[in-house]
Simulated scan of single mutants.
Amino acid sequence: MKRILHITGSMNRAGAETMLMNLYREIDRTEYQFDFVVFTNKKTDYEDEIISLGGRIYKINESNPLKRFKALKHLFITNEDYQIVHCHTNFSNALHLLAAKFAKVKKRIAHSHNTVDKSHNKTIRFFYHSISKFIINNVATHFVSCGQEASDLLFYKNKKVLLIPNSVDVTSLSNFENTHKNYVNEMFNLESTVLKLIQVGRFQNEKNHEFTIEIANLLKSKGVNFKMFFLGVGELEHILKNKVSELNLEKEVVFLGIRSDVPEFMAGSDILLMPSLYEGFPVVLVESQAVGIPSLISDLISREVDLGVGKIFFEDITKPQIWVDQINNVMNSKKISTIDRLDIITKKGFDTKSNVQFLLEFYNSN
C-alpha cells in the first residue's frame, strides 16, 4: 500500500479540505491511503471519517515557523513510508516543502487552491510572498492547482502544472434537485411560498456575512416572507448574532452551525448567496451548480467558478439593495435540464470519479 501524506491547515469543512475528502472517498484504499498533517490540537470536522477510512492524523500545534519546521522534518524522517508529500497550504507550502526536502522526501507536491492574496499589508505581502514563491518553485518537484488563476498566483509560468478542478460527485448531487426539493420546508415546517436563502462558509470577515444580514433587513422591510440560513461557524458568530438581534431578525435569520447536509440544504433552498470580499475557487459553488440552485455571488470572485450551466450570477457588493433587486431575476432565470447540467459539469472536469484517476496516475509518475 502506498501512503500519501497531505499537509493542510486543518481538516474542517472548508473548500480545499472538502475537495480532498471527495477524492479520498473515491480512491482504492487497498492500494492507496491518505494521511494528514494538521496544525491544531482541536478535533477537526473530518477527523472521525478519516480514521474510519484507515487514515492517520498528525497534529502539530506549532505557530513558530522554526519549531513547525523541526516537527515536520522529524515526522518525515521517522516515517520513511512517506515518499510523497502533498502540500495544500498556499504560500506556507514553502516551509513545509523545505522540511520535506531536508528529510529527503522524493516527491514534494505544491498545490495551489487560492486565486487571490489574503494579506492586506502590501510590504509584508511582497517580501513574504516573493520569498515563499521562490522556495516553492525551487523546492517542489511537482505542481498542482485547481485552476489557471490559482496556478498563476503561486507558480512560475515555466512550470508544468497539473490542473485538478475542485471536483464533486456530480451524479449524486444532481439527483438532489428532485429528491430533496422539500428538504428545508419539511425540516422547518415552511410553506413552499417562503423564500429560502442560504449562505455557506465560516464566519470570517472575507465572507461578508454582515452584508447578507443587511439584505435580510431590506427583505423584511419590504414585507417579503423569507428565511435566511447561515451554515458555518467562526470567530465572528457572536458579533453576527448580535447584529441579527439588534435588527430584530431572529425569526428570519437562522444560524445552523457546521452541517454535513449542505447539498441537501441547497436542493431545498431557492438561492445561495456569496457576497465574499475574496475567494479561491469555492467547492461550494461547484456543489451548488451540480445541485442546481442559482447562486448570487460577489463580482470579486473569479469568473472561473461559472461552469456554464446558467446558475451563477455576479453582482458588485456596493449596495445590499442591488442584491435584493436581483433576487427576482435570479429566481426567474432560464433553467437547464438536470441531464444537460450533469453533462456540462462532467465534461469540464469537475467530477470526482474522473479526477481521482488523474491524481493516482500523477502520484505514480516520475
Score class of each variant (00 low, 15 high):
residue 295 S to E: 01
residue 169 D to Q: 09
residue 224 V to I: 14
residue 46 Y to P: 10
residue 189 N to D: 15
residue 350 F to Y: 15
residue 16 A to Q: 06
residue 358 F to M: 06
residue 354 S to M: 08
residue 16 A to K: 05
residue 300 L to I: 04
residue 264 E to F: 08
residue 98 L to Y: 14
residue 209 H to C: 05
residue 196 K to W: 00
residue 337 S to A: 08
residue 310 G to I: 00
residue 22 N to I: 07
residue 330 V to D: 03
residue 266 M to K: 00
residue 192 S to Y: 07
residue 193 T to L: 03
residue 59 K to G: 05
residue 333 S to A: 14
residue 339 I to E: 15
residue 102 F to Q: 11
residue 63 S to L: 07
residue 240 L to R: 06
residue 167 S to D: 11
residue 105 V to Q: 05
residue 264 E to V: 00
residue 172 S to E: 15
residue 121 N to P: 02
residue 136 I to L: 10
residue 247 L to V: 05
residue 44 T to R: 00
residue 40 T to W: 03
residue 338 T to Q: 15
residue 105 V to W: 10
residue 156 Y to C: 08
residue 98 L to R: 09
residue 107 K to G: 03
residue 6 H to R: 02
residue 136 I to D: 01
residue 288 S to M: 05
residue 237 E to F: 01
residue 354 S to V: 13
residue 229 F to L: 12
residue 90 N to F: 03
residue 198 I to Q: 02
residue 201 G to D: 11
residue 185 N to C: 11
residue 344 I to K: 12
residue 154 L to S: 05
residue 210 E to Y: 08
residue 36 F to P: 04
residue 54 G to F: 04
residue 270 D to A: 10
residue 323 W to Y: 09
residue 65 P to N: 07
residue 162 L to D: 11
residue 347 K to D: 12
residue 11 M to E: 00
residue 321 Q to H: 10
residue 229 F to V: 06
residue 260 S to H: 09
residue 337 S to W: 07
residue 303 R to K: 15
residue 137 N to K: 08
residue 114 N to L: 15
residue 233 V to W: 00
residue 242 N to E: 14
residue 331 M to S: 11
residue 210 E to F: 08
residue 98 L to E: 09
residue 119 S to M: 12
residue 244 V to I: 12
residue 342 L to P: 00
residue 85 V to E: 08
residue 171 T to Q: 14
residue 217 N to W: 01
residue 234 G to V: 06
residue 252 E to M: 02
residue 361 E to A: 10
residue 359 L to P: 04
residue 278 Y to G: 03
residue 55 G to S: 05
residue 178 N to G: 01
residue 353 K to M: 00
residue 328 N to G: 00
residue 138 N to H: 15
residue 343 D to T: 14
residue 276 S to H: 06
residue 148 Q to K: 13
residue 99 A to C: 13
residue 172 S to N: 14
residue 142 H to Y: 03
residue 280 G to T: 07
residue 59 K to Q: 09
residue 56 R to P: 01
residue 288 S to I: 05
residue 305 V to T: 11
residue 74 H to I: 04
residue 125 R to D: 10
residue 199 Q to I: 12
residue 324 V to T: 13
residue 59 K to D: 00
residue 317 I to Y: 03
residue 73 K to R: 15
residue 277 L to I: 12
residue 107 K to S: 13
residue 255 F to A: 01
residue 249 L to P: 12
residue 310 G to D: 05
residue 225 N to T: 05
residue 207 K to P: 09
residue 75 L to I: 07
residue 213 I to W: 02
residue 315 E to Q: 13
residue 189 N to S: 14
residue 126 F to Q: 10
residue 201 G to S: 09
residue 331 M to C: 06
residue 185 N to M: 06
residue 202 R to D: 02
residue 138 N to S: 10
residue 189 N to A: 12
residue 317 I to C: 15
residue 125 R to W: 00
residue 11 M to I: 15
residue 106 K to G: 00
residue 321 Q to K: 14
